[in-house]
Design a binder for these strands. Sequence first.
DNA 1: TTAGGATATTAGATAATTCTAATATGAAGG
DNA 2: CCTTCATATTAGAATTATCTAATATCCTAA
Lengths: 97, 97
Amino acid sequence: MRLDKSSAENAARILKALAHPVRLRIIESLIDGEKCVSDIIKAVGGKQSITSQHLNMMRDKGVLSCRRIGPMVYYRIEKRDVITVLKCICGHKNRHN
Amino acid sequence: MRLDKSSAENAARILKALAHPVRLRIIESLIDGEKCVSDIIKAVGGKQSITSQHLNMMRDKGVLSCRRIGPMVYYRIEKRDVITVLKCICGHKNRHN
DNA sequence: TTAGGATATTAGATAATTCTAATATGAAGG
DNA sequence: CCTTCATATTAGAATTATCTAATATCCTAA
């Protein structure tokens, strides 16, 4: 795999962008396609401001991207690998490894 | 996928356990089998105390496990999924998504 | 042009991580 | 017993993440 210092930092940055329960749920809600912010808020059930901050953070890290259509902003998953990561980690609620 | 609040928290906990460059490198160094602490330290090139703290932290979260043989403690990957996560995230140094 | 809905930004408080340096423990040989 | 090598633990400082609440922006219809 050859994980030199800077690739490790890069990978860690992406993983940090995922490592929050609300952010994971946001990603899950976007698996089947883009959604506008208010729909994301409904899906994850959080406050507007916090959700917006999480969205912004993930966009910064390249995990999500967005486009505006009229007054709404639609977010979608840009780094599709995170879906694999999510599925891989979530298959393990009750298993031991 | 059905990511309820508590599964999301669980998944986030594991991802947090991975989301650090040194910890990723520790995991990489353990892919091909268990290693004692001093060999891990050599492999990742960090300080003894910090490496020990990271090892301990990942053991706490169930990512690693260890056994003592004489004066040495051997760590190994307990949650093999993290290898998939690592490979999946690391394949993307230069790709755009 | 202004009002309202949709989203973003900000500042500051609180909490969690990470690092540092020092000290502690544990095993084994002499 | 002591010493030494291997590892763990600790306390506190420094950094970074998160939440809160308030305010700002952006778009569109009237």
